[in-house]
């Protein structure tokens, strides 16, 4: 979405225009869902958190000053929502990776190999401590700079870099162990 259009929509949404906010949701929902999914690897949780994050964002619009991208601001809210969700529900401890499958699909051999590969990698990511996982996902998948990662995670740039490096180091060890 163009920056100008987004700014206009944000302005209208701030004044209570629900239609404008729905347009913002449409523009960012897939990115946000994918981001949360990578953090929790569970559709139901990702869907719930995405929805909650948008609602929180709506009621926080008064605090959005536009000095960062709307998406970056939204991701910060979503990350807080995710952290609260994990804490409140205690779901992380109980969740399994069995819910990873996309909707029913043809199980060819190559797909099964891909699925196995995906599962292993996803498991490796999920075993990372929360902060390390957040830093890796934001840096590698969402392509944020370390400054932006720090802004979203609410920590210093140094802490974001440290979390990222620790996370990548553990992933390397974990993947090396599988090979």
């Amino acid at each position: 979405m163009e920056w100008e259009k987004e700014r206009e929509l944000t302005k209208r949404a701030k004044k209570g225009d629900e239609g404008a906010f729905e347009d913002l949701v449409r523009a960012h929902q897939r990115k946000l869902y994918n981001y949360i999914y990578r953090l929790c690897e569970n559709h139901d949780d990702a869907a719930e958190i995405t929805q909650k994050a948008f609602v929180k964002a709506y009621f926080s619009l008064g605090n959005f000053r536009g000095d960062s991208l709307f998406r970056t601001w939204l991701f910060r809210i979503a990350l807080n929502t995710f952290r609260n969700h994990v804490r409140d529900e205690g779901r992380r401890k109980h969740q399994t990776l069995d819910g990873l499958d996309p909707p029913a699909q043809e199980k060819t051999f190559s797909m099964m190999v891909q699925k196995e590969e995906r599962k292993k990698l996803a498991e490796a990511v999920q075993t990372l401590p929360e902060r390390q996982r957040e830093a890796v996902v934001l840096r590698v998948h969402e392509e944020y700079s370390f400054n932006e990662v720090a802004g979203i995670m609410g920590c210093s740039v140094g802490a974001a870099k440290a979390s990222y490096h620790q996370g990548v180091k553990k992933l390397k060890e974990s993947i090396r162990g599988d090979e």
């Binding site: 897939r30 869902y33 929805q51 990873l100 996309p102 909707p103 590969e117």
Partner: peptide, 19 residues
């Protein structure tokens, strides 16, 4: 390898219904 991990498509209609 990590970057190539794709997120499975959510249930049908999820994005249509979310707004």
């Amino acid at each position: 390898r990590l970057a190539a991990l794709e997120v499975p498509e959510p249930k049908a209609g999820f994005f249509d219904g979310l707004p």
